[in-house]
């Protein structure tokens, strides 16, 4: 059986679920951020697959924009994490409970 659209979409769904698992389970902000990146990349696989099997280039151009936004997002997010570490001395989500009580 040849690899079709469904296989690519299932791969994308699996990768998204693995990223989601990481976001839910891990406690280190940096690792949570990496898993967010994984989820973003998983969604781009679906876009590229749809674009290829539809025969148009629009999905690929979308992924182009997603890559740009992801680069900007990583820069800002990591700067926030560094600022947080400077202020609080930790990046573990369980210790960042300033809003509690």
């Amino acid at each position: 059986m040849n690899v079709g659209l469904n296989e690519y979409l299932i791969l994308s769904a699996l990768l998204f679920a693995v990223g989601f698992l990481g976001v839910l389970v891990r406690k280190n902000t940096l690792v949570i951020y990496m898993c967010l990146e994984l989820m973003l990349v998983a969604s781009t696989i679906a876009l590229v697959a749809f674009s290829r099997f539809n025969g148009t280039l629009d999905g690929n151009v979308f992924v182009f924009f997603i890559l740009t936004v992801a680069a900007a997002e990583v820069a800002v997010g990591l700067a926030i994490i560094v600022a947080l570490f400077r202020k609080r001395g930790t990046v573990q989500v369980e210790e960042l409970n300033a809003l509690k009580n």
């Binding site: 469904n6 299932i10 769904a13 699996l14 998204f16 693995v18 989601f20 839910l24």
Partner: peptide, 19 residues
């Protein structure tokens, strides 16, 4: 446990949406 169940639900939902 909760995270695995949530992620498995999400993955299964997406896969059944695809298939």
């Amino acid at each position: 446990v909760a995270g695995t169940m949530g992620a498995a639900l999400l993955g299964l939902g997406l896969c059944s949406f695809v298939t």
